[in-house]
Simulated scan of single mutants.
Amino acid sequence: MAVKWEWENATAGAVAGFATVAIMHPLDVVRTRFQVNDGRISNLPSYKNTPNAIFTIARSEGSRGLYAGFTPAVIGSSISWGLFFFFYSRAKKRYSRDEEDKLSPGHHLAAAAEAGALVSFFTNPVWVIKTRLQLQNPLHQTRQYSGVYDALRTITKEEGWTALYRGIWPSLLLVSHGAIQFTAYEELRKLLVDFKSEKAKTKDVEVLNSLDYTFLGASSKVAAILFTYPVQVIRSRLQQRPNQNGVPRYADSFHVIKETARFEGLRGFYKGITANLLKNVPASAVTFVVYENVLKVFNLTRKKD
């Protein structure tokens, strides 16, 4: 029964991840292009702001540009959310003595961090491919990848399989993003359940509805983004394609930090944050609404059985 419940969590997470990407992907493309544009790269177009970026990409590249990297994004997001909820639920079970045992914020933090680290190792190659595809544009100076398989084959042939793990250390640091988000979500959820239960004179957690999950998903995401966004910029800059000589623009995370601070200052570490908030705050709300409601369907099915 425990294994079945864990796979239900994984399925709910995967469905939620797919729904999120399908709705918000154009903003993800915009965010990635803002993140890597340090003003010194000739083959990247410049945009004034997020609306201008969307309009410019749509006009010059069409829907193909707005949905560049969509396939790896769908694959990566669905796998990531599915594995995250799977590993997260397993970790919470290990930390709790029984079903009625309420976990502390520290336990939620540890469970989310553990799940995030495992997911990073599984999915980093997918994110490298997604980033590379999103950065392709009419000004690209090297042969463009024709798709996911071509990108995978070309990267391993030209750069070796280790290139698929570029940005892995920032990715592991970004475990803190999921940890912060899920800890905030769980703690806010408990407060909201207690408040609504007391008001309704019941201890039934079903007092929460989709509007509540929207608030919880969005607010927990804002907290996580504000704390961890600079690490996302570092990761994107590491994962971009090398120049025509095969030399990566940045050698490592420290090189990114040094160059960004030198030429762009603090502002450089927050490039694209508007698009990121516009994409991820509603996306997080959608994800948790879908996740919680899919779990409710599973619960109803289990009760009937």
Rank of each mutant, 00 (worst) to 15 (best):
W127D: 03
Q136D: 04
S284P: 03
A58N: 10
V29G: 04
G76Y: 02
T131Y: 05
A14S: 15
L211W: 12
N137W: 10
V247G: 05
T56M: 06
R31W: 09
S89G: 11
F86Q: 02
I257D: 00
S236A: 15
R166C: 04
Y185K: 01
P170R: 09
A10P: 04
V289E: 06
S80T: 15
Q144D: 08
L266I: 13
A19I: 10
T71M: 09
S120F: 12
V126N: 04
I57V: 10
D38F: 01
K279P: 00
L216F: 06
H255V: 05
R241V: 05
A151L: 04
A200Y: 06
G13A: 10
A111G: 09
S253Q: 10
L135A: 04
Q141W: 07
P138Q: 06
F195Q: 13
I57N: 02
N124Q: 15
K201S: 15
A283E: 06
D150A: 11
G167Q: 02
N52S: 11
V74K: 08
I75A: 15
E259S: 12
A223S: 11
D194A: 12
I225E: 03
T20V: 04
Q136T: 01
G13I: 05
A113C: 11
A223W: 11
N124E: 11
L173E: 07
R97I: 14
Q181G: 12
L278M: 14
I180T: 07
R31D: 10
E159H: 10
E186Q: 09
T123C: 14
E187L: 11
F182D: 00
A10T: 06
D212H: 13
A251F: 07
V21K: 04
H177L: 10
Q136R: 05
T156M: 10
V15H: 01
V74L: 15
A275N: 07
V193R: 12
F122Q: 09
W169Q: 09
V297W: 00
T56V: 07
E8N: 11
L238A: 05
V290L: 02
F215V: 14
R241P: 01
W169D: 08
T214H: 00
P125E: 12
Q239K: 05
G116D: 01
A251P: 01
L164T: 05
G246R: 13
S253E: 12
A112W: 01
Q181K: 13
A218P: 13
R40H: 13
D101L: 06
N124T: 08
K190L: 09
W127C: 02
F298Q: 03
